[in-house]
Simulated scan of single mutants.
Amino acid sequence: MSPFKGQTGLKRILNATGYSLAGMRAAFLGEAAFRQLVLLNAVLVPLSFMLHVSRVERALLIAVCLLALIVELLNSAVEAAIDRISLELHPLSKNAKDMGSAAQFVALAMIALVWAVILL
């Protein structure tokens, strides 16, 4: 067992919340792509409430936006882990980073597709 897994109950939840907030802060301060997605969400999420769409459609419009933030957080985590291992150019490191980028591309395409389908 990991020594970092010793907490239970409310203490574990509080610790996990702190780690999550620290991760979001690190992403916001250190990742331009994350800041850009936060800005996109700051525009699109309120816009979704101004549109005459059903609740399910609104939920989808918001969900795809939040999904892109999740994908960017995971992509940034993969990149940080790869860079922590080595800054040396390696084909496997390149593949891992490229796949993270591809995942983000798909998430952004999904935003465009879902918004287009619902609005057009």
Rank of each mutant, 00 (worst) to 15 (best):
A26S: 15
A27G: 08
A27P: 00
G30W: 02
A33S: 11
A33F: 00
A33M: 06
F34P: 05
F34A: 05
F34E: 07
Q36T: 09
Q36M: 04
L37Y: 00
L39H: 05
L39R: 07
L39Y: 02
L40A: 14
V43N: 06
L44K: 03
V45L: 05
L47W: 04
S48Q: 01
F49Y: 14
M50E: 11
L51N: 06
L51M: 10
L51C: 09
R58H: 03
A59K: 03
L61I: 07
I62C: 06
I62H: 01
L66D: 15
L67R: 05
L69A: 12
I70R: 03
V71I: 08
E72V: 03
L73D: 06
L74C: 09
N75G: 07
N75F: 00
A80Q: 03
D83L: 12
I85T: 14
S86A: 09
S86T: 15
L87P: 02
E88Y: 11
L89S: 15
P91M: 02
S93V: 06
S93E: 11
K94G: 09
N95T: 10
N95E: 11
A96D: 04
D98I: 12
D98R: 08
D98G: 08
D98S: 14
M99Q: 12
S101G: 12
S101T: 13
A103D: 12
Q104N: 14
A107C: 05
L108Q: 10
M110W: 10
M110S: 12
A112R: 03
A112Q: 03
V114N: 04
V114D: 05
